[in-house]
Structures are given as C-alpha cells and as structure tokens.
C-alpha cells in the first residue's frame, strides 16, 4: 500500500475482474444486461473488438458522452485487461 500510484496500477493492471466490476452498473453482472436493454452486452465478445471500441470512445472517434468519459478513465493496459476479462465471460443471458 506504500507503493507509488504508477507501480500499484502496473501491478494490478492484469486484474480484469476488479476493473470490470463497476461496469456492471450499466452493462449487468459480468457484462450481461437484462433482456431488451439499450445497454449492450459485453460478455463473450471479441477482446480486440472491445479494445477497439474503448479506444474509439476514448479518442472521441466514436460519439458517446457517457462512454467517452469512462473510456478516458483507463490506460492502454487497463483497457486490454478489461477487454480480455469480458471476452472470457460466458454470454449466457441473465434472468
């Protein structure tokens, strides 16, 4: 806990579950939103696709004020960890 911020971030950048947990607040637990939601599902999608989307939101190339803000909150390593974690989740639907 006494490590400087950058070292802490580097140590834990691979911890996709920890970073992905708050995303469930809109996208549903493990990236599986309720049926018929306007919030897109993330579970089981291709990691490269998710990384591309987050990078496009971050740069503003893809327009969304909500996702633009959020994507700017993560560095490249964290985006890679988030994408890999969601890609590894089963896309089965929630009730």
């Amino acid at each position: 806990m006494c490590l400087p911020g950058s070292a802490v971030a580097a140590d834990h950048a691979g911890d996709g579950a920890r970073l992905a947990a708050p995303c469930a607040g809109c996208h549903g637990t493990a990236g599986r939103p309720p049926a018929d939601s306007v919030m897109p599902g993330l579970a089981g999608r291709d990691a490269a696709e998710l990384t591309g989307l987050l990078e496009a939101y971050r740069s503003g190339e893809r327009a969304s004020e909500e996702m633009g803000r959020i994507a700017r909150g993560y560095n490249d390593a964290e985006i890679a960890a988030l994408s890999a974690w969601f890609a590894a989740q089963s896309p089965r639907s929630e009730p």
């Binding site: 911020g5 909500e66 803000r69």
Partner: peptide, 23 residues
C-alpha cells in the same frame, strides 16, 4: 448524465478522479 472514473491515491489516501474522465 454526469459521471467519472475513480482510483486510489496512496499519497492522500483518497479516491481521485482519473484525469479526463469526469464530466
């Protein structure tokens, strides 16, 4: 909407807005 992404700042022991993520 309003929103932000937060992480922990070990110096201040407070949550800190990730730069650029608040709006």
């Amino acid at each position: 909407s309003v929103g932000a992404v937060y992480s922990y700042d070990p110096e201040t022991k407070r949550l800190q807005v990730r730069p650029g993520s608040s709006g």
